[in-house]
């Protein structure tokens, strides 16, 4: 039975090694776990958080989850091309143009309630995804412009239609310089004289 002894020895050694290495691996897996953001969080952090539902999901996070599960990345109009590009970058897929079916990119807006017309029905509060509207029943309501994401969701429910989406104004404080235009990249149709004149 010596063959059995030697085989069983070998099996014992191998089995022991398997156990030891398994233990080491298991320990390493716990000890050195990569603390990466789950992909959904990363996607969610790119989405603009307007929470407007234009993508067809009830908010940005559900859309992030959907993207993580393979949905298209071009359904978020508030984010526009910039967001699509970032997502494409993150997920290593092609940056496709915005799906116009879900709406088109628009300038930034905030909601504004014409307070003298508001009847205080609180419908808008219920609609606002980020609690950016203040007011109580039968009191006039008002929008905290800083918190408003411009999602448009409060406009529809208002029975007296007293909510306007007003384009965000640029003030001297929020204004930024534009990239130089024609000066930097001349094309064939440019004439130096014209550029000088226009400048």
């Amino acid at each position: 039975m010596s063959w059995f002894a030697s085989v069983s020895d070998a099996m014992l050694v191998l089995g022991g090694m398997a156990l030891v290495f398994g233990a080491i691996l298991g320990f390493a897996a716990i000890r050195f776990k990569v603390e990466g953001d789950p992909i959904v969080d990363q996607i969610d952090s790119i989405l603009p958080q307007t929470q407007c539902g234009q993508c067809g999901y009830p908010g940005c996070r559900p859309y992030a989850e959907a993207i993580a599960n393979g949905d298209a990345i071009n359904k978020c109009p508030p984010g526009g091309q910039a967001t699509i590009n970032q997502l494409a970058n993150l997920l290593d897929v092609e940056a496709v143009p915005l799906d116009e079916e879900h709406g088109s990119e628009d300038i930034k807006k905030v909601a504004f309630i014409r307070e003298d017309e508001c009847i205080g029905c609180t419908k808008c509060i219920q609609a606002c995804p980020v609690d950016a509207i203040l007011g109580a029943a039968k009191q006039m309501h008002t929008v905290i412009a800083d918190e408003c994401t411009g999602c448009d969701l409060c406009v529809e429910p208002c029975p007296v239609d007293c909510i306007d989406m007003i384009p965000v104004e640029t003030t001297p404080r929020s204004w930024v310089w534009e990239k130089p235009g024609a000066h930097s990249q001349l094309i064939a149709t440019d004439k130096i004289g014209e550029i000088r004149g226009a400048a």
Partner: peptide, 11 residues
């Protein structure tokens, strides 16, 4: 330059 659509004289 012509093929690339750039102003020839300028460059």
């Amino acid at each position: 330059l012509k093929l690339r659509g750039r102003p020839i004289g300028f460059y």
